[in-house]
Simulated assay, not measured.
Amino acid sequence: MGLAATAAQAGDIDLAAAAELAKNSDCFSCHAANEKIVGPAFASVAEKYAGDKDAIDTLVQSIQLGSKGKWGRAAMPGHSSLSTQDLKLLAGWVLATKP
């Protein structure tokens, strides 16, 4: 997925619903839009995966199962209770984050 495809997907998501889901899923406990807290800034994640055709799937897996070592020593806990639709919504929202 190129940058244009990522932007097109971002245009297809409900940004308000995604932000509310992120808030309710405690994403903001460790992440912020443009600054590192415990985990990376959403904008940094978007930048890292820009142009990656598998970005949505990669982020869905990281959100669902958690990850360790991608952004330093802190581990991200998994969010296995989220539906596939919600996982894709969050992944698309993260990828749409601008610095």
Rank of each mutant, 00 (worst) to 15 (best):
A4Y: 10
V38A: 12
G2A: 04
K70T: 11
V94I: 15
L87P: 06
V45E: 01
L95I: 10
G11V: 00
A18G: 02
K23C: 01
T58R: 12
P77F: 12
Q64A: 11
D14F: 02
H79M: 11
L89M: 02
P40D: 11
G51C: 05
K23M: 09
S67K: 08
A55I: 01
R73M: 14
K36C: 04
P77Y: 10
T97L: 00
D12E: 15
K68Q: 06
S83A: 04
D57Y: 01
A55K: 07
A46M: 11
I63H: 13
A5S: 04
Q85L: 11
D57E: 15
L89T: 08
S62Q: 13
M1D: 00
A5Y: 06
A74D: 15
K48G: 02
V94Y: 05
L65C: 04
L90Q: 11
A32D: 14
D14E: 06
L15N: 10
L87S: 00
A4L: 10
A10M: 01
D14W: 07
K48N: 12
L65H: 06
S81E: 14
A74T: 12
K88R: 15
H79R: 15
L21P: 06
G51R: 14
K88L: 11
A33I: 03
K23W: 02
E35V: 14
A74K: 07
H79E: 08
L82R: 08
M76T: 09
W93G: 01
M1E: 10
Q64K: 15
K36F: 06
A32M: 03
A96V: 06
I63Q: 06
T84G: 14
G11H: 02
L82G: 07
A55N: 02
T97Y: 03
H79K: 13
Q61I: 00
A18D: 03
G78P: 10
A17I: 04
H79I: 13
L3A: 08
I13Y: 03
C30F: 09
D52L: 05
P99I: 11
S25N: 05
